[in-house]
Amino acid sequence: MTAVDVERLSVQFHGRGGPVVAVDEVTLSVPPGSVVGLVGESGSGKSTLARAIVGLVPPVGGSVRIDGVDLGTLSPAARRRARRPVQMIFQDPNSSLNPRMTVGAALTEALGVRERAGRGRAVRDGEVAELLDLVTLDHRVAASYPRELSGGQRQRVAIARALAVRPDVLICDEVTSALDASVTGAILNLLRDLRRQLGLSILFISHNLAVVRYASDQIGVMHHGRIVEFGDAETVVRSPEHPYTRALLDAVPRLGGADASTAVP
């Protein structure tokens, strides 16, 4: 069981007029075995926060702790090892898989990262099949190239690849945003099943409040790089405190028509 703790994390980019703050002193915890949802609109910094946690962008301040160990205090090699239990799944099913590698090759490569991976070809193929079972994909998919699969299938392969290194924490960055509504449910159900089966914690990021609420135990609302509200999922949705949260809730299209009950101050 791994916990991810982020403390006063800040990330900056270079803009035309000077540094642009994308993440502004964010403190967040993903307790072991729980799902924390992060919701916000474009430019809120939620994706940047995720990328900072897995080390794709460098923070300019604050710390990321995995199982209590501050990553900043480690050597680069040690840091890479410490990060391994935290894996990420990206939004765009078109670019998250190497177009020149078959599904089987990609999964084998990911399996090779774990020291305990089996040596022989048969053992490796068996492990690939196991991964595909986990994400309920047909074994024959292993021989396919990404371009031959649908968006939903590609997302499942991306999930399988992340699972290959036996992570404890999955960061899902808008994983259903590019999928059709009918397929979204399947992916969300899959994540729910995997969480139960493997005891994963999940940081679930989306701009879709309804999806985040469904998938998460706790919700954080991000706006302009800051977390403006955080709490139990049901509470945040039923009794939001921050005006931005209320505006966000108000804006979610409702089946049956808009109602003016939650006015924006």
Partner: peptide, 10 residues
């Protein structure tokens, strides 16, 4: 993203 994923995989 697949390069990013490769980095994250380690």
């Amino acid at each position: 993203d697949y390069i990013a994923a490769a980095h994250v995989l380690g």
